[in-house]
Computed example of a mutant assay.
Amino acid sequence: MNGLEIQNLAVTLGGNAILRDVSFTVEPGQVVGLIGANGAGKSTALKAVLGIVEPEAGDIRIGDQDVAALAPRERAKKLSYVPQGAPVHWPLTVERLVGLGRTPHLTPWQEVREEDQAVIRSVMEETDCWHLRNRLATTLSGGERSRVLLARTMAVGAPFMLADEPTASLDPLHQLQVMDIMRGQAACGAGVLLVLHDLSFALRYCDRLVLLHEGGVLASGTPADVLTDAHLETAFKVKVARWSEGGEQFLAPHVAGG
């Protein structure tokens, strides 16, 4: 299986052009960050790849397969998704909710198998939510719910994982744990596509970045290529302070001219 390729993607919603001529690739083993100001089209790009919104134009392929032509179950096996701030309406236990991630691998009415249960426990332990397994999902805090939904997505075992701001609502420790998990998914061969707002996380954790601006690609490449002063001032209207500590690089934005 080759990379996830997005070519010349265009999306119009409600008569407004949200994306135009957007192209990038997510290779297996890579973490690719989608960054940009609010309204740049980042979440829409993820939803177009997943088929949640219908593109006006463009091709989305995994290797030689047209993603749009895949049956829903086959698409679900290849592309998993962590939505941003998704509510949970069903009074399911947390363990049962995470177990829904195994659905694409089961036939209708098939019980969860022993191997599925092993996957469920493994991903819940990795996301620090195994201790929540008997709680009703509707009683979780926002941060707990985010970790549980990440575990559900990991349970799919898809070769490509898409996540929309996976660190939102999390405390600093769990933000770092989630980003380490994303890197771990890539280290195991998955292609990971993240929507991020934290520029330090984008710099430290991503192999490649795609900077969206006004619906198009302003810059694409390594973090060093994309996170230039000129690009950040154009896209975000900010300047940044840069430093390194313990071999890690950091940046902090401040208002341009401030």
Rank of each mutant, 00 (worst) to 15 (best):
H174W: 02
R208Y: 03
H174N: 03
G143Y: 04
M161E: 15
L150A: 05
D207L: 00
R208E: 06
A187V: 15
L194V: 07
L193P: 13
C206D: 15
S200Y: 03
T153V: 04
L203C: 03
T153R: 09
Y205K: 11
R147C: 01
P159M: 04
L196P: 07
A219V: 00
L211Q: 07
M179P: 14
A168E: 14
P172E: 01
P166N: 08
A187Q: 15
V178F: 09
P166T: 02
L212S: 01
L176E: 08
G184E: 10
M161K: 11
T167W: 06
Q185V: 04
I181G: 15
D198K: 04
M179T: 06
C206F: 03
L196E: 08
G142I: 00
V195Q: 08
E165N: 06
H213Q: 03
D180W: 13
V178E: 11
V217K: 11
G184F: 06
R152L: 00
C206V: 01
R204L: 02
P166Y: 11
R145G: 05
L173D: 15
D207S: 05
L218A: 08
V195I: 04
A158W: 12
Y205W: 07
L211E: 05
G184A: 08
E165Q: 06
G184Q: 12
Q185W: 08
A158L: 06
M182W: 14
D180S: 11
D198W: 04
P166V: 00
L199I: 00
D207A: 01
D164S: 01
L162R: 14
S169V: 00
S146W: 08
A158P: 06
D180R: 14
M182R: 09
A219R: 13
H213V: 00
V217E: 05
D198S: 06
A168T: 09
M161I: 07
P166W: 07
E165G: 07
L194Y: 13
E165R: 11
L203M: 04
M154F: 09
A202P: 13
L218D: 13
G191N: 14
V192A: 07
P159H: 06
L170P: 13
A163G: 10
A158E: 13
L170G: 12
G189D: 13
M182T: 07
F201P: 14
H213A: 00
A155I: 03
G184W: 10
L203S: 12
V195P: 10
A168H: 10
S200K: 05
R208H: 11
T167S: 09
R145H: 06
L173E: 10
M161W: 12
M154C: 06
